[in-house]
Computed example of a mutant assay.
Amino acid sequence: MTSPLIGVAELAAALDSDRPPVLLDIRWALGGPPGAEEYAAGHLPGAHYVDLDHELADPPGPAGRHPLPDPDRLGAALRRAGVTADRPVVAYDAGPALSAARAWWLLRWAGHPDVRVLDGGLAAWRAAGHALTTDTPAPGAGDFKVDPGHLPTVDAGGAAELARTGLLLDARAGERYRGETEPIDPRAGHIPGAASAPTAENLTADGHFLPVPALAARFTALGVTDPARTAVYCGSGVTAAHQLLALALAGHDGIALYPGSWSEWSANPANPVETS
């Protein structure tokens, strides 16, 4: 399997080739600043901005803060960004891939065969001495048609079942898992039986993914053995995709995402909550 990551040098060479990849700028941060403003101030040459809140998710509601997007709306956004079925796609964000991984996961879920994430993101691109631009490309003429369901998901009931009988990984920070703080969702704590696996522990200090052997050792220690009996959740299904990317790097592809995540679970008073 081709690595889901691409380094700066490889991407720079690919952009100079006869068949450059489609570049997607997925900058986003909970609480801002708006990714569109950062994109306008400077982005990788040829990159199209894709809005995580409005194009890579449905509106917030009972299904959580970032429900999976309507396939038609997702397809329209990807075609506007020039995504085609037969051309590679590279997604990037400001650095640690926490939002770019959402695009990576969605494109694979939608059936795209060749999508990768820039390791280290825009920060790594700039650190290597490559230029940014404020030029905005014209809307693309992509032909990609979303065919949802190519990666597995679980609902709240499925997540609870795996927490009891398999392995459910909670990708949020440890203090949120333990219920010491909850900055945005209705209740603090975690799904009973879930294991704490903070996404930040997939990364080096400079925002790159850990080497594959280190990731493999991490997930072995967490008890990952059977992808079919494992799922991942986070606050709203965004950073969980980063965990799934790290798992794929470690050789555990095809693990399920709980899209509603804690934002859906905690909003339902009938769902039990555990703190520890």
Rank of each mutant, 00 (worst) to 15 (best):
M1R: 11
S3V: 06
L5S: 05
E10L: 05
A13E: 13
A13Y: 02
A13S: 12
A14L: 12
D18C: 14
R19L: 15
P20Q: 10
L23E: 14
L24C: 08
I26F: 01
R27H: 07
G32E: 09
E38V: 11
E38I: 11
Y39A: 01
L44H: 11
A47T: 07
A47N: 07
H48T: 03
Y49G: 00
V50S: 02
D53G: 04
H54C: 09
L56H: 03
P60L: 11
G64C: 00
G64F: 00
L68H: 07
P69R: 13
P69F: 14
L74Q: 05
G75W: 05
G75I: 05
A76Y: 04
A77W: 09
R79M: 11
R79K: 08
G82E: 09
V83M: 10
A85F: 06
A85C: 07
A91D: 03
Y92H: 11
D93I: 03
G95Y: 14
S99L: 04
L106A: 02
R108N: 01
A110S: 15
G111Q: 13
H112A: 08
P113A: 15
P113K: 12
D114Q: 09
R116P: 10
L118T: 12
G121C: 03
L122F: 03
A124F: 10
R126T: 12
R126M: 08
R126C: 14
L132P: 01
P137R: 11
A138W: 06
A141T: 08
K145E: 15
D147I: 03
P148S: 12
P148H: 09
V154R: 07
A156D: 15
A156S: 15
G157F: 00
G158E: 12
L162P: 01
L162D: 03
T165Y: 00
L167E: 10
L169D: 01
L169C: 02
A171S: 05
A171F: 04
R172I: 08
E175C: 05
E180K: 03
T181A: 12
E182K: 02
D185W: 14
A188Y: 04
G189E: 06
H190C: 04
I191E: 08
P192H: 10
G193E: 15
G193Q: 15
A195D: 10
S196R: 13
A197I: 03
E201I: 01
T204L: 11
A205N: 08
A205Y: 03
G207E: 13
H208C: 11
A214E: 15
R218M: 14
F219K: 01
T220G: 10
A221Y: 07
L222D: 01
G223Y: 06
T225C: 08
D226P: 10
A228D: 15
T230Q: 03
G235C: 04
T239I: 13
A241S: 15
A248C: 09
A248E: 14
G251N: 12
G251M: 09
G251T: 09
G254Y: 03
Y258Q: 06
P259Q: 04
P259D: 02
W265A: 08
S266N: 13
N268H: 13
P269L: 03
A270D: 15
N271F: 04
P272R: 15
